[in-house]
Design a binder for these strands. Sequence first.
RNA 1: GGACAAUUAGCUCAGCUGGUUAGAGCGUUGCAUUCACAUUGCAAAGGUCGCUGGUUCGAAUCCAGCAUUGUCCACCA
Length: 844
Amino acid sequence: MSELSKIYQAENYEDALYQAWEKSGAFKPGKKGKAFSIVLPPPNVTGKLHIGHAAMLAYQDVMVRYHRLQGDKTLWLPGMDHAAIATQNVVEKELKKAGHSRYDLGRPRFLNKVEAFAEDSKKVIRGQIKKMGSSLDWSRERFTLDESSSLAVKTAFKKMYDDGLIYRGERVVNWCPRCQSTLADDEVEHREEQSKLYYIKYGHVTVATTRPETKLGDTGVAVNPKDERYKKLVGEKLVADLMGNFLVLKVFADREVDMTFGTGAIGVTPAHSQTDYQWALKNDLSFIKVINEEGKMTEAAGQYQGLTVKECREKLVADLQKAGKIEKIEEYTNNLSVCYRCGTTIEPLTSKQWFVAVDKKIPGRGKTLKQLAIEAVKKGGIKIIPDRFNKTYFQWMDNLRDWCISRQIWYGHRIPVWYNQDKIFVGLTAPTGEGWIQDEDTLDTWFSSSLWTFSTLGWPKKTPDLKTFHPTSVMETGYDILFFWVARMILMSTYLIKEVPFKTVYLHGLVRDKEGRKMSKSLGNGIDPLDMIAKFGADALRLSLLVGATPGNDARLYEEKIAGYRNFVNKLWNISRYILSKSQETNHKKQKISKSQITKLETLADKWILGELDKIIASTAKNIEEFKFSAAGEELYEFTWSKLADWYLEVAKIEGGKDQILLSILEKLLILWHPFCPFVTEAIWSEMGKKTLLMIERWPKVLVKKQAASHDFELIQQAVTAIRNIRSERQISPKEILDCSIKTSVKAVKDNLSLLAGLAGLKIAASVKGITVNSTKVEITLAVQANAELDKKRAAEAMQLRQYIEVQQRKLKNQVFVSRAPKEVILKEKEKLKQAQEKLQKLS
RNA sequence: GGACAAUUAGCUCAGCUGGUUAGAGCGUUGCAUUCACAUUGCAAAGGUCGCUGGUUCGAAUCCAGCAUUGUCCACCA
């Protein structure tokens, strides 16, 4: 066995270990055990991974490695998302730098470019995922645009079309003029913006608007039915002249009109507003489209044709002002709609698009898609962690409207619909015959990702994987895509395969910077996971992301925190180094020492540490199964550093002959830590000379030892700490041997304390005068000089104790307390009182 | 406008379904140096758990209200 370095050098081990894992085939699910599966939320192929991805990988790898150690048939399936608009944007931006547009290249050549970019991106991302130590089954890697995903998409589309759940219609949609595409409602973000509210005269009625240019498309005026000012106008037709554009406006009443806003009368623009569109349908208004897909004014805008929206607004307002048609202009804070991908202002406009009907009854099921998705969570098929997101989910589902799924971009799944004059064909492949032309549009990227849990397992084919691993066990993802993705997966899965896509949804929070700000390129406060791995090692990064992060809550990350866990990883390394070096020494002397001497087990300290080990084996498993990764990590950390290293190893140095017990503890400890920090644990495992991999070991069994030893060992700890305290405050060197006397009812304490005395520098003496240190059953008197200042401190301590005793006595005399509190609580309180009294007695 | 969360030591956060004299890490202070580890060890200081009421024998924990911060949703033109 080679000598281990003083400090764990992560970079010397990580890549080789990953290769060894991958080569061993252990990332693939085994043949036995119950199934445990997670499908990786596919990262977008837009470039590289950020720290949020690193966090996601850490959480999932903990679960996956844990279940593998439990002997489950464990699958973690990797894949990536083509992220239609996002990816196309990146490539278009690059083209633009060279002065080109996608139209210069044409569809096929442009798509080749995007595909090449996506392939490069995938390579980079794969590398990053591996750097994190993620134990994914790469033999099953998938892509949302690969062949079988395409088949799944087309199959789903056709079925929904045949069931009447997908339809084509002319409706107001969210249009991004920059992306040249529609967006779903939830892909629109809202930003507060300082703008102006213009009061425009429509003859004798004045309407208020933030968007004067759309007024050119007004065909109605809405008022509240209760509004006395306008009552007599309802049903009338107004004619307004907007700089030569004559508007014919039907006045109608609707309860949703806010009488207190503006003038109480609203100009209605059916072609450029969702609300107005609904009103127009109800009140039979006509549609005038004044803004086109480029964000420019149409022919219907008369003299303003060809101007951009902004230009038109400025010119029209100036013209109207000159003509005396503007009553006033007020400052106003507006909620601006912008594209979530590029931030461009959304133009709502009417357009012919494909939609998924969420409120239509599914033939043969008697329920709507929306109802299916709500039931899946309500009836307990799916558990969301933390559960407060149930409410958010239901609220969103209740408000869900038909989902616009067609996008006017090139990169993505082409809509499987063909047209021939007025004939239409929907199918998996092009129809035969002359004159069929496929729809130019592609599908919303979320359409393909909504099938992800089962399309990755082979659907629509009935594969063994689909049978074994679906529904998946856990969906681990960020709460920010609960709607985009999680909700849509539930919708599609319950409809298409009559199964929930996953049993548990674990939602993690965002990773923020030290000040709690969102990490972003513009702020430059992002932390690159690869930099951190290079600096501190992947294990340290994983731990810093795992510990301190609770589900659904954002967590902060900064270098000092990662450095702290790097220190811990090194501590684990050195604990192992010590244990291994000791056992090596003994091996050399093996012939001289009898077996009974080597395994001098079962001292008080042995019993204590083995009891603690049992506890931590059980609690770590429980914590991981309950998704409390942070708590699991914290408790293990405490066991490893504060109990094993700080106490047991020190005792072991004194008592000696603990090679077997130490090695056995180390083996178990490495298994417990493996899900959290797989690299260092596997590295140590191999340094121990193990021939098989740690990652395929089995989770240790709890031995159910009698744990009475715990308490007695804690007495020793208390006494030792008290002695050190005295040394520290009186500045007595640890080397100075102190005379003392020990009184205790527990014999083991006396024995062990004499061993530990070497630590504390104690000398046993029959009777000594000096300062008394005590815990419940131990009393130690140290021969040290009195010190006025410190005696004062002891007096203050005594004072505090007396107060506490008084409180406890009052509590125990209180009849109401004694009669109502449970017995255990009363006993506990009595014990506390007794301890305080004893302590006080010895102090004075 | 609605909903949700957070508010605990200088900083970052634990604290499960009420029973602690409220914990950890970092930071701070003092001490220790050829010991597995200075990426270390030992010890200490530091909090009336946002505010006000209520329920209870007992509240950081449950309830109500308020304040501050943050997030999400919503068609207020």
